[in-house]
Design a protein around this nucleic acid. Structure first.
Lengths: 181, 181
DNA sequence: TATGTCATGTAAGGGGTTACATGATTTG
DNA sequence: CAAATCATGTAACCCCTTACATGACATA
């Protein structure tokens, strides 16, 4: 069977503080989008469903400033469901890399083309590194006093490690391709 | 819009040599499963569809040894479709890590629990490294003479880099958690 | 003879993306 | 005043996984 994990992403975010759907989305982008993504098409219906099941409550804030928002708050039932899910076994990740498929089958294409693909892969992740390094610095100064931020830091370090590995691999690959030319 | 990439995985495999569905699946497991996965439930219907569209042809081999197989061969049309897809822009990967979500939200759980999760993550990938290293050795001896194998090698090096990054991150994370205890 | 592997499939169901739609508000 | 952003949603579609189903053959 397949549990809906989006539910728990939302519950996790709301467990930190009450938020509107739009804000949850922004928070996701900022904090966990390097290892989990949620689209509006999934977010809003799931919020509605969580409310219906009593795991969150909704309060519409009319006319405060900007468009009206629907602020959601996690309920004790929701917290219980979240905690229970957190103790469930971790599922193995099945990641897919379009680039690798194209590389694997791309021996007929000109090497220059392959080089281009790898270069843009490299620069995509290289450009993200500074942001992660800044997060790392900020978090490391807070962590000694705050348990929550330790967990956040660990995921930032993960992003840093993996993206750095991407960049290093790209350099290695480009070296090999240069030798072949 | 969303193209069906499974089609091109199959075409790519058949472009190397004609095979039955079962063999394609095994080949996928052996060579690209660390960056792409295909299930039977997707494989067989897609093969059927590719045949219907004329991108592959099917020949049933009855009674040779073992159960009968349906051997598929790529057609010129199929090769054209494959080549065309290979030149399409690479799509950004959207990978999901269940573990990271549980880490990110898991500050309320006992540290020992978190440690356990990270340890099993580490050992899962650490145990895969020797196999990749062996592939690396084998391929490096062939590569100078064979263009195909260079591309295969690049994806093996990718697996090696990323899985090594996983292991290194795990060690880093465990160190942090030890300090906290 | 029972278990495991070979070999091919189908059906159900869900999760998730994309595209479409709407309207208010802010900013250049 | 136009464009971007805020804010919430719906509908279609499809990819994919899971579970189920079948039967032959090999092996312990």
């Amino acid at each position: 069977m397949k549990e809906n994990k989006t539910r728990f992403i939302i519950l996790g975010m709301l467990n930190h503080e009450p938020m509107a759907g739009y804000d949850i989305k922004k928070r996701i982008e900022l904090t966990i989008s390097h290892f989990w993504q949620v689209s509006y098409g999934q977010l809003y219906p799931t919020l509605k469903r969580l409310a219906k099941e009593g795991l969150v409550t909704m309060a519409a804030t009319l006319s405060e400033k900007g468009p009206s928002k629907k602020v959601y708050t996690i309920t004790p039932l929701g917290q219980k469901a979240l905690l229970q899910w957190l103790t469930l076994p971790v599922e193995k990740e099945n990641n897919k890399y379009d680039l690798m498929v194209k590389l694997f089958f791309g021996s007929q294409l000109p090497i220059s083309h392959t080089v281009g693909l790898i270069q843009s892969f490299k620069s995509r992740y290289q450009s993200l590194l500074p942001m992660f390094r800044q997060f790392e610095q900020e978090l490391k100064s807070i962590v000694p006093h705050n348990r929550d931020h330790l967990h956040y830091l660990l995921t930032v370090l993960f992003g840093l490690k993996v993206y750095t590995a991407y960049v290093e691999w790209a350099d290695e690959a480009l070296t090999y391709l240069n030798q072949t030319e």
